[in-house]
Amino acid sequence: MTVRQLSVFVENKKGRLADVAETLASARVSIRALSLADDPDYGIVRLVVDQPDNALAVLRANGHTVKESEVIAVGAQDRPGSLARVLRALADADIDVDYMYATLVPGKPDVYVILRTHDNPSAMEALAAAGVPILRAQDVYEA
């Protein structure tokens, strides 16, 4: 199963990222994983949060452009070679990774790797066949 990710458009201006973080804080939304893609003029903040609906509503209410998309979260041991195994499985199945980011899970020797591919069902099939654990959305939100 996939995990809901929220992407927010931010201009490269002072305080814009802080504004996004404060908006989420005001709604008591906790960020599970985050990445920032940047261009000279603007950036895309990608977030996995504990309360996607709540976060989406509060971000939109504050005038942000938000896009929701489905991403895959896989669990990997925090040790050399585990990420390589994930990516090799996808490469062998001819799956393109649009982008990915990782986050440490508090209190566990685990890393969550968030993946956005052009074909999520095939990606999950390939990962499962390679024995890579795919996380349930609820487990990520409640981590």
Binding site: S7, D39, Y42, I44, R46, V66, K67, S69
Partner: peptide, 16 residues
């Protein structure tokens, strides 16, 4: 141009 939800994408290549 204001980036509306319809124009926006989570992929940088789409925006470019």
């Amino acid at each position: 141009v204001e980036v509306s939800d319809a124009l926006f994408s989570d992929r940088m290549t789409d925006l470019r």
